[in-house]
Write a protein that binds this DNA or RNA. Structure first.
Lengths: 237, 237
DNA sequence: TAATTATATAGGTCAGTCCAACATACCATC
DNA sequence: GATGGTATGTTGGACTGACCTATATAATTA
């Protein structure tokens, strides 16, 4: 018995064909981020299609993060710089549509972030560690300014998570972690202020572990840190 | 000093406004997967816009994975079931656009997949383990059929990776792993045939570890497995 | 010189028209 | 009765040409 003797015949849409051409041109580097494509009317002529079909293609490319459209004189379709935006949007949509639960997301995040923390102990340079310590001190100062700044503090604390994770020097991991940012913000805001001390102490210990190049310890500490504050948020819900 | 007292007034495109309404309606559950939206002409009338603007909105929603369009009689826009497709597409695009190197991707994959393997030991039911063992036996039979089936074997071997990973019951992890599939295929094809025995033995051992509910052991074995074949592919390049 | 006002460019939208794909029902042939 | 053709209505796909809106740049004016 043959398996799959025939391929599905796809009557490709005109717009799809255009999308594919432009996408390839961008991926091949024929257009760099910031470059402007010809105007819609010119493109339509070049492809030999109507403006409406071209417009569909542009909308698709815009949605997938390859193009940004500006109106007005000297406007047009500009090639967008690579961004994690689409990853994060699609992950967000997936979660919202309940292909996944919060618990799955939380587990995923812990694994990835803690692994980054472990690798940070191996890969971070002294200079990077100093930089992170500086950032930590700013965070500490912010905490001392009192409850008016509590929300700002929490926002900065999340950014600090990313700073630590970036020390692992893995852009894929960092991009995926960043894509969970929206979700993180919506929960951290519920953390009550009297946990300030605990938060700061945890980070202090993690930084110390990184300085000692003790990845296992750093990983364990961050794991406890996240686990604790995750637990707390589910109890306040 | 106030921060951001006003939001940017966005002269939202008509199509964006429509996208938002339909997206919300779907997220709110007013439309279930499989449901059909009214025809384009009706929708255009309902929103009070032209058909072209509506079409743009539909393309955007199609691209973000919420709608599927079918032509012909009884055709129309159907609400799509949630899928990991968009996540994997956007990740793929991000990596292609040089956000990351192969090494970063490989590291990312190992961490995630091995963690799933570890969790599989905790979460997989007996039935699922039996199912996986069945799949393994098919793989073994395929290997015995000789070199003509070697490429088929390698493809199935990759699918087997996913089968194991799915036992961890974390859809986010699985979705992200799947999104690396394209990349995996392009490398596994270089693995020479005489490693067949080694591959099968490794999997046998991993399944045994899962049956013993020894997550640490399973994780270690899979790590070695992937690490070995990753090394090998870089030596054949 | 600085503010204002044209103007050209380019995207956004619409209406109408026609084409292509498909489901369905009906019909003819064997 | 089963198969294959044919007609038809619905729905998406595409084109055209016109007009509106946004914006950078140049020309104009106070």
């Amino acid at each position: 018995m043959m398996e799959q003797p025939f391929q599905r015949v796809s009557t490709s849409r005109v717009s799809e064909a255009i999308v594919e051409q432009i996408r390839q041109a961008i991926l091949d580097g024929q257009f760099q981020p910031g470059d402007r494509l010809p105007s819609q009317r010119e493109l339509a002529k070049m492809f030999g299609v109507g403006r409406s079909a071209l417009l569909e293609a542009i909308r698709i490319l815009e949605q997938s993060g390859l193009l940004t459209i500006r109106t007005g004189g000297n406007g047009g379709a500009f090639v967008t710089a690579p961004s994690i935006r689409q990853v994060s949007d699609s992950l967000d949509l997936l979660v919202r549509r309940e292909g996944a639960t919060r618990e799955e997301l939380a587990e995923f995040r812990i694994v990835l972030e803690c692994y980054c923390c472990k690798m940070a102990a191996e890969k971070a340079s002294e200079e990077e560690l100093n930089q992170v310590e500086l950032e930590f001190n700013e965070l500490k100062e912010l905490a001392e300014k009192g409850s008016a700044y509590w929300q700002t503090f929490l926002t900065r604390e999340i950014e600090f998570h990313f700073s630590i994770a970036s020390l692992a020097h893995n852009r894929v991991s960092l991009a995926v972690l960043h894509s969970l940012a929206t979700w993180l913000h919506s929960f951290s805001s519920q953390i009550p202020e009297f946990y300030e001390g605990r938060m700061l102490n945890n980070w202090q210990a993690i930084i110390a572990a990184l300085r000692n190049r003790d990845g296992e310890q750093a990983q364990r500490l961050l794991n406890e840190h996240i686990y604790f504050f995750n637990l707390m948020r589910s109890s306040t819900e």
